[in-house]
């Protein structure tokens, strides 16, 4: 049987097209990027200034900037690894049976979760010594290492909450079934609860990684030679030509976008997939 009708309820369900990013379509972004890159150059070409076009200048600096960006990624990997390891411990502390452990873990988590990342970074930078003496051996603490420590603190706190939330989100029946089968608490956690949590933790964890990657540029403020620092230095070396600002910083933006956007898309896909399974 078929009806002819204007009533929306009677029409077959059609999935909506995916929401475009901030109302932009992919081709909009390309156009904007082209304008950012070539706009100023065109203006200068018309002015007849006998200098290299900004785009050509940028090309010269690209290898160095890419190096800086890779350094950002290295900082993000290490801070994520460290923060995840510490955060998992802290998260497990938050569900500990010992009231004291729970309390301390809760406090550390809340404290670092509600602290501005930049302040934590400054703390790590200026309160840690540049080297420590252990049994007569001096171990240097380079700036990049302190940046990793500083950035891993908020990551730790957020991972702690992700772990706690995932464990809490499992039905209590899982704990009861395991208890009734005489599993010890530790076995219950490692064999039954945590394996089920990994799936639930993955999307927010990847989200956090994205945020961390974008936050690595904060390290430029405390003097680590990452991509923002290098961009500033490159611009200074070119004599601070204002028409270079947009292409250079635009390039840095594009680098981060090219890296973080796929992660965000992948996270959304994972979330959808798990939503269907659960």
């Amino acid at each position: 049987m078929s009806y002819k009708t204007d009533l929306p309820v009677m029409k077959p369900f059609k999935p909506r097209e995916p929401e475009p990013l901030l109302g932009f379509r992919p081709w909009h972004i390309v156009v904007i990027a082209l304008l950012v890159f070539f706009g100023p150059s065109l203006a200068f070409a018309q002015a007849g200034v006998p200098l290299l076009t900004p785009f050509a200048v940028l090309l010269d600096w690209v290898p160095l900037l890419l190096q800086g960006f890779i350094f950002n990624l290295a900082i993000s990997f290490l801070a994520m690894a460290l923060g995840t390891a510490l955060g998992t411990l802290l998260g497990l502390g938050q569900i500990s049976l010992s009231r004291a452990t729970r309390g301390v873990s809760w406090f550390l988590t809340q404290f670092f979760r509600n602290a501005p990342w930049l302040v934590l970074l400054f703390f790590a930078m200026f309160l840690l010594p540049f080297e420590i003496n252990l049994l007569g051996v001096s171990i240097p603490f380079p700036d990049w290492f302190k940046a990793i420590l500083g950035l891993s603190l908020p990551v730790m706190a957020n991972v702690s909450e992700i772990v706690r939330g995932a464990v809490r989100s499992l039905p209590s029946g899982q704990w009861e079934a395991a208890e009734s089968l005489a599993y010890s608490r530790r076995q219950t956690l490692w064999l039954i609860i945590l394996p089920q949590c990994v799936k639930r933790m993955l999307p927010p964890w990847m989200n956090l990684y994205s945020i961390l990657t974008m936050a690595t540029v904060l390290a430029s403020i405390v003097g680590v030679s990452e991509v923002m620092t290098l961009t500033g230095q490159a611009l200074a070396a070119e004599g601070g030509r204002p028409e270079l600002l947009a292409p250079f910083y635009g390039f840095v933006l594009l680098l981060f976008f090219a890296y973080c956007y796929p992660i965000a898309r992948f996270t959304v896909r994972l979330e959808r997939k798990f939503a269907v399974i659960n």
Binding site: P171, Q174, A177, A178, S180, I192
Partner: peptide, 14 residues
């Protein structure tokens, strides 16, 4: 609990 088995309303399989 090794001596007492239990089965639940919601099965609670892993």
């Amino acid at each position: 609990r090794k001596k007492v088995g239990m089965v639940f309303q919601q099965y609670n399989l892993f």
